[in-house]
């Protein structure tokens, strides 16, 4: 008979995990799992439900920002702190499905599901996110880009629970944006997702930049070569075009019924130009005020 364990504490969850390991499917909001189960892609014998664990929920803002793994997308979108300190993540979370999915779906679930189209991951990568993992015997912190290892694959070890996501707050002189491409006004699976976080000096020089994408490869990734192309520049056309060229070279999008690889590559470049324009505009507005 199948079993459903609804853990009330992290300890209880870790205890269940230590006993059953991978023979136990961790479920938070369950929005992805329930679909995969119904279509027969998975057939778990045991669920570990972690959504009731209060200490996995919430947003802690101190020197660093910690987001509990079962914090819902809706809570992220509604968080005044995150709106200020991590606006890219907020706008990305606001594009995950409709209201219903944003209430049930969680940040940790979106990460662990590791979909190539996961909306929250590019913004997290741009914010140098770390994931905090815990097992009954150990704790570790891993960079998000190392945690996501491939299409629907993470480096989470047997017995480990993702407890929190740590992100760097947006520096005072920085801007960030998440651009999601899809034909409808909402409820889209990203055909292309692009997050940019950028710091521009008063002289207009790019001091720091992070560019990350989803839906243009087997996993979301930071586009280091594109970042290098504009780091130290003044976002002049040539630098931007170089970044676009590096970014599209690095991308390896799929052809599928949603869009062709050719479309995704083309739009990815336009999205970067748009994102940089928006950030530059934000920068100028900040400088003026």
């Amino acid at each position: 008979m199948k079993e459903f364990v609804s853990a009330q504490s992290i300890d209880e969850a870790l205890d269940t995990l230590s006993r059953f390991g991978d023979d136990c499917l961790i479920m938070a909001g369950g929005t992805d799992i329930m679909i995969q189960q119904r279509t027969g892609d998975i057939d778990p014998r045991r669920y570990l439900h972690i959504e009731r664990i209060e200490s996995l929920k919430g947003i802690l803002v101190d020197e660093k920002i910690l987001i509990g793994s079962t914090t819902s997308h809706h809570s992220i979108v509604s968080s005044k702190n995150l709106q200020r300190l991590c606006p890219g993540l907020v706008s990305a979370s606001a594009t995950v499905g409709g209201w219903q999915t944003q209430e049930a779906g969680t940040l940790g679930g979106n990460i662990c599901n590791a979909s190539p189209a996961a909306d929250t991951i590019p913004s997290l990568l741009a914010a140098n996110a770390l994931v905090h993992l815990k097992s009954s015997s150990a704790e570790r912190t891993v960079r998000l880009d190392e945690f996501i290892v491939g299409r629907r694959m993470t480096s989470r070890l047997e017995g480990e629970l993702l407890v929190a996501i740590e992100v760097e707050a947006l520096p005072a002189n920085a801007s960030e944006v998440y651009i999601k491409v899809g034909p409808r006004s909402a409820m889209e699976v990203a055909l292309v997702g692009l997050a940019v976080r950028i710091s521009i000096s008063p002289l207009g020089i790019v001091e720091n930049v992070a560019i990350a994408t989803c839906s243009v490869g087997p996993k979301p990734f930071r586009a280091i070569a594109a970042e290098t192309a504009i780091l130290g520049s003044q976002l002049e056309d040539e630098a931007v075009m170089n970044a676009v060229s590096e970014l599209t070279q690095e991308a390896s999008p799929m052809d599928d019924f949603r869009a062709s690889a050719r479309y995704r590559k083309q739009v990815l470049g336009s999205a970067l130009v748009n994102a940089l324009n928006i950030c530059q505009l934000q920068h100028k507005l900040r400088e003026q005020s």
Partner: peptide, 26 residues
């Protein structure tokens, strides 16, 4: 938005409403 693409296998490539885009309020 809407289209049922027919694959070379004679099946639609869109298999669910998640893949078949219906207009929403916005």
């Amino acid at each position: 938005y809407e289209n049922l693409d027919i694959g070379t296998d004679g099946k639609y490539r869109q298999k669910t409403l998640e893949a078949y885009r219906l207009p929403i309020a916005g």
